[in-house]
Amino acid sequence: MTKRNEIDPDTPLCCNCARLRRAARVVTRLYDDCLAPTGINTNQFTILGYLFRERGPLRMMALGELLAMDRATIGHNLKPLERDGYITIAVDKTDRRARLVSVTKAGIAKILEAHPHWVLAQDRFESEYGSAQSAKLRHMLDCAAEQHLES
């Protein structure tokens, strides 16, 4: 057993963060590869999907909370979607400090175009990992995300 002030060479093998990030990179690569013909990536598809699901504008901070992204990261991810006309960002009339993000008709069209490619990625993942295991994984990941583990 390693003392607290010594480095354990097995740390990477038991590090939850390292394992989650490794899995996330592999899965993201699958989804990005499947979505590539549509010109959007997994993050962009997810953002458009949340905006479409809500059927109305979302405050940028609320969208960031749904995605577990800070203000700078969500802003960075929204720029290409705004540039390409898939979303609009407007000042909230009730709070001029806040920004409202809305999906446009072009954004909805992009979601409809990308959805079959997402289904392909989803099917590939579930055929390898199993549908029941995938459902359990989503539940476990949601539980982990809801722990609010910020330092």
Rank of each mutant, 00 (worst) to 15 (best):
K3R: 11
D8M: 06
D8E: 01
D10H: 11
D10A: 13
P12L: 04
L13H: 13
C15S: 13
N16E: 13
C17N: 11
R19K: 11
L20G: 10
R22E: 13
V26F: 03
V27W: 03
T28W: 04
L30Y: 07
D33E: 04
C34S: 08
C34L: 03
C34H: 04
L35E: 00
L35R: 01
A36I: 01
G39M: 03
G39W: 03
I40N: 02
N43H: 12
F45S: 01
T46L: 12
I47Q: 07
L48C: 04
G49M: 07
L51T: 01
E54H: 14
E54N: 15
R55K: 14
R55A: 11
P57E: 07
P57K: 11
P57M: 08
L58G: 01
R59L: 08
R59M: 10
M60H: 09
A62W: 10
G64E: 04
E65I: 05
L66C: 13
L66G: 02
L67R: 15
D70K: 13
T73D: 01
G75F: 10
H76R: 15
K79S: 09
P80H: 02
P80N: 00
E82N: 03
R83G: 07
R83F: 09
D84C: 11
Y86T: 01
I89H: 03
A90D: 05
A90V: 06
V91Q: 09
D92Y: 02
D92N: 15
D95M: 06
R99L: 15
R99E: 00
R99C: 08
R99W: 13
V101D: 02
S102W: 01
T104L: 04
T104G: 00
K105G: 04
K105D: 01
A106Y: 01
I108A: 15
A109N: 07
K110V: 00
L112M: 11
L112F: 14
L112T: 08
L112N: 08
L112G: 13
E113H: 04
A114P: 01
A114M: 01
H115K: 08
P116C: 02
W118Y: 09
V119W: 07
A121W: 01
Q122S: 07
Q122V: 06
Q122G: 06
F125N: 04
F125M: 12
F125V: 12
E126V: 06
Y129F: 12
G130S: 05
S131C: 11
Q133L: 14
S134Q: 04
S134Y: 11
A135N: 14
A135F: 02
H139M: 13
L141P: 02
D142H: 10
A145M: 12
Q147N: 09
Q147E: 15
H148S: 06
L149V: 08
L149F: 09
E150G: 07
